[in-house]
């Protein structure tokens, strides 16, 4: 089962490498990883996704918590949550028909074309991972040149929040 784990981390040298190292050392995979400072720049917020059953997820959360730089950890998948990912896709767009078709596809997926050249379209899309996967499938035949995904960022729904 896919897990979205959110971590509030001291924004210190080496903190990120300890998180990544932990996953390597304990034999867990990281599928996606995003990290950036928060509104308080002494803190980093990190979201990572991985696969695992309940037992494994519990161990991962506990192990992450044990890292000295970790302030808070939650497995967002346990409760109601929102996940978002940003994707940039560069498409071959020389053919007029393809341009039209692509534009309508982008509209359906509520994306934007953010760069245009005589031969390419670059599309920006946000959503959960399924939506981005679906878009890729929808436009695959039209000629994808490059895909860049930010990895998942997650936040819980409602009153719950992760803060010091």
């Amino acid at each position: 089962m896919k897990r979205i784990i959110s971590i509030l981390l001291e924004n210190e040298a080496g903190a990120l490498s300890r998180v990544v190292g932990l996953f390597a050392q304990r034999g867990y995979n990281i599928d996606t990883l995003t990290v950036a400072p928060t509104d308080d720049d002494t803190l980093s917020r990190l979201t990572l996704t991985t696969q695992g059953d309940d037992h494994m997820a519990e161990q991962i959360v506990k192990q992450l918590h044990k890292l000295i730089d970790t302030i808070k950890v939650v497995d967002l998948t346990v409760g109601a949550h929102i996940e978002r990912e940003l994707m940039l896709v560069k498409m071959k767009a020389t053919d007029k028909d393809i341009r039209t078709e692509l534009k309508s596809c982008v509209e359906i997926f509520r994306g934007h074309v953010i760069d245009v050249t005589p031969t390419t379209y670059t599309v920006q899309l946000t959503g959960d991972s399924h939506k981005l996967d679906a878009f890729i499938e929808a436009v695959r035949e039209m000629g994808i040149m490059e895909v860049v995904r930010s990895g998942v960022s997650g936040i819980s729904r409602g009153d719950k929040f992760l803060r010091v």
Binding site: A13, G14, S17, R18, G21, Q25, I68
Partner: peptide, 14 residues
Amino acid sequence: MVGVSRPIVKHSFL
């Protein structure tokens, strides 16, 4: 040293 010792320390500082 911080890198080499990372998996075998409780914590480390540079």
